[in-house]
Simulated assay, not measured.
Amino acid sequence: MVNEAELRTALHRELRLDKDRMRVDIGPEVPGLLVFHAYDPQDPRSGATGVFDGRLHFSFEENVALVLRALGYGAREVDPMLVAGAIGKLEGNPGTPFLTGFAIEQSGNPAVMTLPRLVSVDGQQVVEYWNMTSRRPFWRSRILREPDGTFEVRQELPGGR
């Protein structure tokens, strides 16, 4: 079982983040993994978003696969809030997925946006949620599991762009 202390040690060793100043924000609970964003508040270039399973992973595509496989996405029913919280955090390095009605009302667009939910795309049930970053306005993401077992994150701006 991985834990935050091991994550902090790995971040210090591999990214040279200062142990005393390092801030770590851990995403929702995923079996055997920690989804995280870490940074040094005194160094704006120090931010890193990824997955820790005993090793640090920073590739978005690899991290999507690690998280969704750990959750059993596509093989069994998975809570859309959990998927949105974990994958949404990884998007945008880091993303800020909209997980509450309050967040949508305060920072989003209630006329367009919904809470994370299951929708049908090409006959497949997929998780759909809304996300944003401090550098990018909100967008909709849909998580698909392809027939070959790989995953795709489709992003779309409001209005279909």
Rank of each mutant, 00 (worst) to 15 (best):
G101C: 02
G123I: 09
T100K: 07
F138R: 07
V121T: 14
Y129S: 01
V121N: 11
N93Q: 15
P147S: 06
E146I: 08
P137L: 11
L118H: 08
F98I: 00
G108A: 12
M132I: 13
R145S: 06
M132N: 13
R135S: 12
R117K: 15
P116V: 08
N109S: 15
Q124L: 09
P137K: 11
T96R: 02
G95I: 03
L115E: 02
T96H: 10
L118C: 00
V126F: 06
V119D: 03
P94N: 01
F138T: 04
W139Q: 04
T100R: 10
M132F: 15
E105C: 02
P147R: 03
L118Q: 10
V112E: 13
D122L: 04
T133H: 09
G108E: 11
M113N: 01
L99F: 10
Q124H: 10
Q106H: 14
G95P: 02
E105L: 06
N109I: 04
A103Y: 01
V121D: 14
Q125C: 04
G101E: 15
S141R: 04
F138G: 00
G101A: 14
P147K: 00
P116R: 08
R136K: 12
W130D: 08
M113A: 02
S134V: 12
V121Y: 13
V121W: 15
M132E: 14
T133E: 00
V119N: 09
A111R: 13
E146S: 12
V126S: 06
T100L: 05
L99W: 07
F138W: 07
A103D: 09
S141V: 05
P94T: 05
R145T: 07
E146T: 13
R135M: 09
W130P: 03
V112M: 11
N93M: 14
Q124W: 03
R140N: 06
Q106M: 15
R142M: 10
G95A: 04
T96E: 11
P94G: 04
T100S: 09
P110V: 05
V112R: 10
L118T: 04
